[in-house]
């Protein structure tokens, strides 16, 4: 079986994000980029499927769309245990919206069919969670989102996935091929082993640009974007706090007065 894990190259969650002076994008200088933690779930889900179902004879491909440096997340996927890596990279892909990204991914799957596609529930950069469902739609595959467990049917023709919904759990049965986006709680991603990290550098990466995917500049141009990032602004600085001084009784009275009359919180 052919298994695909979609992986995204994003700023680390603790990175201090700065916006470029012209507000066009975030400034990547000095920011450490990693695989989105939810994409680690997508890779781990694929690895565990392969390890627990020898009969399925699974082969795992990791795929990313991103700048040249994004190849790092494929190296991470290799170090965790992925067999193949596909890097979709082209200046024309810069600034694509989610539907645009899904279209490029779908184009990459024209000649290569996968039985199961794992995506993360969302990436931790923009938190939109749209690429997975959009890709499933474009490929005509069933999609189950925010999955927390999967049971595989006999012969891997079907699967039963569970997802958390408000106050309950939803159980969804799907036919394969299908796309799952994985939530926290299904699998605990492994750390890439150090020998795995070393070997990952030597593994070939299948790099594809727009031309290789048969996509023209016109198709990818801003005219075809359904949404467009208008600009970036850093969050406003936090207003300074206010400090009350005096005797405890006075301060308590003043605090109650502020909460009631000025802030209207009580």
């Amino acid at each position: 079986m052919k298994i695909l894990s979609l992986v995204k190259y994003v700023p680390e969650s603790t990175a201090a994000i700065k916006v470029k002076a012209d507000g066009s994008a975030i400034d990547p200088a000095g920011v450490k980029f990693v695989m989105t933690p939810f994409c680690e779930f997508a890779v781990e889900a694929a690895l565990q499927f392969k390890e627990k179902n020898a009969a399925a004879n699974a082969e795992i491909t990791a795929m990313t769309l991103g700048p040249a440096a994004a190849v790092d997340v494929l190296r991470t996927a290799f170090a965790m245990g992925a067999d193949h890596g596909v890097h979709l990279s082209d200046p024309l892909f810069e600034g694509l919206d989610d539907l645009g990204v899904a279209r490029v991914l779908a184009a990459a799957m024209k000649d290569q069919k996968f039985d199961v596609i794992f995506a993360g529930k969302h990436a931790i950069d923009y938190d939109r969670g749209q690429v997975g469902p959009a890709l499933a739609e474009l490929l005509g595959l069933p999609h189950v989102g925010a999955v927390t467990s999967i049971e595989w049917g006999a012969d891997f023709k079907t699967a039963t996935a569970r997802r958390r919904i408000e106050g309950a759990e939803e159980v969804v049965e799907v036919q394969l091929p299908c796309l799952f986006s994985i939530d926290k709680g299904y699998v605990e991603p492994r750390y890439p082993s150090l020998p795995g990290l070393m070997k990952a550098k030597k593994k070939p990466v299948d790099a594809k640009n727009a031309a290789a995917l048969g996509l023209s500049a016109a198709e990818l141009s801003g005219d075809n974007w359904t949404t467009k990032m208008d600009g970036f602004t850093p969050p406003p600085p936090r207003p300074p706090g206010r400090k009350l001084e005096g005797e405890p009784e006075q301060m308590a009275k003043e605090l109650v007065r502020i909460l009631r009359e000025e802030e209207k919180l009580i």
Partner: peptide, 11 residues
């Protein structure tokens, strides 16, 4: 187990 699977023992 994780120290071992990282490859830290006798690395």
């Amino acid at each position: 187990p994780e120290i071992a699977s990282l490859g830290l023992l006798g690395c």
